[in-house]
Design a protein around this nucleic acid. Structure first.
Lengths: 198, 198
DNA sequence: TGTACATCAGTGAACGCGCGTTCACTGATGTAC
DNA sequence: TGTACATCAGTGAACGCGCGTTCACTGATGTAC
């Protein structure tokens, strides 16, 4: 028998193991058996702590959303200048992608969309929360006359996401050969030139 | 017994049925049994025409790649001005996404990356071929002094992809509520302003 | 400090299910005579 | 035009596999006395 631990500890262990599994092998690799093996317990023991696989996935999505939002909080604490904040957020986002492949794997995964609508709605809510905060930074920049006032903040926020996403996909597809950092730096310069006041 | 047809006809029927299934239900919905049902034959009959599921997936990837490259060919025939070509390509790309959800579903799908490396390499080759052709249009624009000469064409090509991808994901996540066309038009204006000569 | 007991995390066998694939067969189709 | 035959697309039963989930159980842990 494996060591007997409290359910709060196990719940966290299970969520982290699931996140790591998704990072390494994709949502496809996220089976109850795999999570259990990683935690060091038997598959059926998962059901002592979660109602089922769906509940484990929800826990993983919560972790992903929290990490994205933590990044926004962090850059707001680090810098006051809106353009600087965006640049820092970009760098953090890329670091997050490199360290935790789980994030793109989840955001882009089939299972999120073809599965239960509740799951998709949950993820959409997380992404829009993130975009909303980026839009807030854009508005701050407009108020300070650092960002062009004729631009639509939500559009800029989605474009900001567009600086990262294709690069992240190409990185994964190319097995790391595509240089995300170099691309993102170049793209950031073009993007910055497009949004800052002349 | 189902009607007996030549293998060239069946091969095409099977590939198209597989593409449609991916479009509707994602790569998850692509099972040998589902494809067979759609074509109107029995699962084991698929093996008369393809070596296995892997070969069917390869056929689907070929179809997707061809449709992307056809778009580039089409806009090059329609317009001479490079910026106009890019704008038309953008519109066509969005139309392709709306009509054939299979494309984003395949490009973003887990199975492509977590599965066999050969599959991933094939898709990467298709995407880079597309990006290369976009870069060629960018260079044409630079030669005509319509696009800023200090920009790196491959970077611009990836950024071009970035105009579409996040929007397409948000569209799917939001169940169609996110207005892709409106966003893309606005983003295009910002993008165009960033790359065209002042 | 020592004992009896309740709690509940972990176990392992079992389930039904859909999957990709195989294989001996069937019988419709097209060709050769 | 009619018949015999070869070809080969389609069939259906069977396989092993991993999946998520259930359930009666076991036994370690912490508490009450």
């Amino acid at each position: 028998m494996s060591e007997k631990l409290g359910t709060e500890i196990r719940r966290e262990q299970i969520a982290l193991a699931a996140l790591a599994l998704v990072a390494e092998r994709g949502l496809d690799g996220l089976s109850v058996a795999n999570v259990a093996r990683r935690v060091g317990i038997v598959p059926s023991a998962i059901y002592r702590h979660y109602a089922g696989k769906e509940a484990v996935i929800e826990a993983v999505l919560r972790l992903v959303r929290d990490r994205l939002l933590d990044n926004v909080r962090a850059v707001s604490a680090e810098a006051a200048d809106p353009l600087d904040r965006l640049h820092r957020l970009l760098i953090r986002h890329i670091t997050l992608l490199r360290d935790h492949q789980a994030i793109p794997r989840i955001v882009f995964s089939e299972e999120i969309y073809s599965g239960r609508p509740r799951r998709r709605a949950r993820m959409y809510k997380g992404i829009t929360a993130y975009l909303d905060r980026v839009a807030v930074i854009v508005r701050q920049g407009q108020a300070r006359r650092a960002i062009r006032s004729d631009l639509d903040p939500p559009t800029v926020a989605v474009m900001f996401l567009g600086l990262i996403q294709p690069a992240s996909i190409l990185w994964r597809m190319s097995d790391g050969r595509f240089d995300v950092t170099r691309h993102t730096e170049r793209a950031w310069k073009v993007f910055r030139g497009a949004i800052e006041t002349r």
